[in-house]
Amino acid sequence: MDKAQSLETYKLDKALDSFNYQQVQDDIMGILERGSGVMIDMSACNYISSTGLRVLLCSKKVAAAKGLKICLSGISDEVKDIMNVTGFINFFDYA
């Protein structure tokens, strides 16, 4: 298996919004810096605002530039709804 396929799991809290996006962004960037892709476990998260969506998109762009993967798992109906409305649902791989 090539290196790009190794995924480190990162578990989100119950919300990804204006109040915690910086920490989440820093954490995900840290994993990407180490050369690993990220499996974002969203099973506890039922709220994502536009600021949270920006973190996901930014992570995807940075990962892609490094040849790494961002994969989402356990997305709730509430999060799925916002991702559908904004067209973000098609940007990611799901596990």
Binding site: S49, S50, R54, C58, T86, G87, F88
Partner: peptide
């Protein structure tokens, strides 16, 4: 309808 490569990081909040 844009792909993630073309989408820029902004304008989302008011849209939502």
């Amino acid at each position: 309808g844009m792909s993630w490569k073309e989408r820029c990081i902004g304008g989302l909040g008011i849209f939502i």
